[in-house]
Every structure is written in structure tokens, then in C-alpha cells.
């Protein structure tokens, strides 16, 4: 009896496994070689099947693109397939955005209404091909200046950069592009980062003399932002400002010693 039960269980397991395999046929990576005309609806159907999701491509599905790859073929699967579809849609000014449990192609100009809002920390884990909106807090950089610098670098349709208050900006773009734009933000932030440097008062001068000399000398210099104060010990001057400002003030104090 036990043997019979064991055999029945084995047979059942085998049947269940084979049924599961039939229900989930293996999708091979898409191989692209040579020259091909790709219809967006067909590409979307393949991406949907390979990733077990739904993709609504609406009118743009009829559009076609040329894909030329080496004869040795390149394989695409998973995120690479989504990226290929996203690139194909971009050629026709469409983007792929979340739509319920699946995805939908919408005109790029409307992307900002559909894309998820994520934090700066989440940018690191978001897939390259996904369009996102992200708020970036700025340190030491004016939001209008940063937005102005980045405005030319986002997609002509769908891409957006706008100041959000005085010390933050909002970017709507594809994740891989957002990462590139963050390089600009980080460089600007790093350059404008203020530090406090303590300078000893040169012999023969008072701290007030030196402070007033620095203030008077650099007062008219455009874009030269710093704060100077006398230390409570009376023998030092404290200057707060970014590195390039500190370098020039250090040279000025050297000239005072002569």
C-alpha cells in the first residue's frame, strides 16, 4: 500500500511539474542580427511575453524602425528588452510608463503625468529604462541656477527640470539620464561647498584691521561669496566660503604680511 501511495505521489508530482512547464514556456533571449525593420507592436508583444506583463502601445504600435546589428548577433532579454522598446518609442516621441499591473506607451509630452515619483536614493536601484520624477535637495547651489544649467540637457519632449522651492529641483527623465544629470548637480554642489578656514592675524596688525581689509578688498568682486569674522581669541580670522574663495583670501593675507 505504501509503495502504491509513493508511486501515485511521484506520478502526481511529475504531472504537476510538466503542467507547470507547459503553462510557462521558456522565452529565449531575443537575438538581433543584420538589418531588420522592427514594428513597435511586434517588439512590444515580444517584450510583454518575455517579461510576463502587458504593454499597451496604442497608435504608435503601427510605427516602424530600422535596427541594424552585426551579423554575429546581439541577444537582449529582461531590462535590455525594455530598454530596446523604450529607445524605439523615443524615436516616435513616446515613452513607456506604468499602467496598472502592466505598461503603456504615452506621448512623451505627457510622461510627467504618469511616471512614478521616487527619492534620490531610489535612483540607484531604479532600472535604467524607467522614466521617473525625482526631487533633488541641493546644498550650496541656488535651485534656479541648477535648473537653468540642466534644462538644456533633458529630453526635448517629456524631459523637465524645475526649481522646487529655493533649495531643491525636480527632474522628470529616464533613470539613466537622471544619473547623468546628478553628476552635474554633484559637481556644482561640491564646487560651492563652504568650509571654515582659520587664518592667523599677521604680526603688527589687529584682527579688526584684517577683517575690514578683507571685506573692503573683495566687496565689489562679483560672485565672490564669503563671510569673515574675528575669532574670540583675538588672534585669528575665520573665513567661511568655498575652496576657490579661500585660496584667494589666503593669497591676500600673505600680501598683508609683506
Amino acid at each position: 500500500m505504501r509503495r502504491l501511495i509513493a508511486i501515485v505521489m511521484l506520478v502526481c508530482t511529475a504531472v504537476a511539474l510538466s503542467a507547470a512547464q507547459e503553462a510557462k514556456p521558456e522565452v529565449k533571449p531575443m537575438k538581433l542580427s543584420g538589418s531588420a525593420t522592427v514594428k513597435i507592436s511586434e517588439l512590444a508583444a515580444h517584450v510583454a511575453k518575455a517579461n510576463e506583463t502587458t504593454i499597451d502601445v496604442q497608435k504608435v504600435g503601427q510605427a516602424e524602425l530600422a535596427h541594424i546589428a552585426p551579423s554575429t548577433a546581439v541577444a537582449a532579454e529582461g531590462d535590455a528588452l525594455f530598454m530596446l522598446l523604450q529607445n524605439a518609442l523615443a524615436q516616435h516621441r513616446y515613452v513607456l510608463v506604468p499602467n496598472g499591473d502592466g505598461w503603456a506607451a504615452v506621448t512623451a509630452a505627457e510622461a510627467h503625468k504618469h511616471v512614478p515619483v521616487i527619492t534620490r536614493a531610489e535612483v540607484a536601484t531604479s532600472a535604467d529604462w524607467k522614466w521617473v520624477r525625482v526631487k533633488i535637495e541641493l546644498e550650496n547651489v541656488d535651485a534656479n541656477a541648477a535648473a537653468g544649467a540642466l534644462r538644456n540637457l533633458v529630453a526635448r519632449q517629456g524631459g523637465a527640470v524645475a526649481p522646487s522651492g529655493r533649495s531643491a529641483i525636480e527632474i522628470c527623465e529616464r533613470t539613466d539620464r537622471v544619473r547623468e544629470l546628478l553628476k552635474v548637480v554633484d559637481q556644482l554642489t561640491g564646487r560651492q561647498k563652504s568650509e571654515i578656514t582659520v587664518y592667523p592675524v599677521p604680526a603688527g596688525l589687529t584682527d579688526q584691521d584684517v577683517m575690514h581689509a578683507i571685506q573692503a578688498h573683495f566687496a565689489r568682486r562679483p560672485g565672490f561669496y564669503f563671510r569673515v569674522e574675528v575669532s574670540p581669541n583675538g588672534s585669528d580670522i575665520d573665513v567661511t566660503g568655498p575652496a576657490h574663495v579661500q585660496a584667494e583670501i589666503a593669497r591676500f593675507i600673505e600680501a598683508l604680511k609683506e
Binding site: L65, A66, H67, I68, A69, P70, T72, Q91
Partner: peptide, 12 residues
């Protein structure tokens, strides 16, 4: 594409 082993996508 062939010589440098690159893939190109464009609107023909």
C-alpha cells in the same frame, strides 16, 4: 555595425 560590432536603432 559589422566592423565595430555595434547595434543601431533609427527611424528609417
Amino acid at each position: 555595425a559589422e566592423y565595430e560590432k555595434l547595434s543601431f536603432l533609427f527611424n528609417s
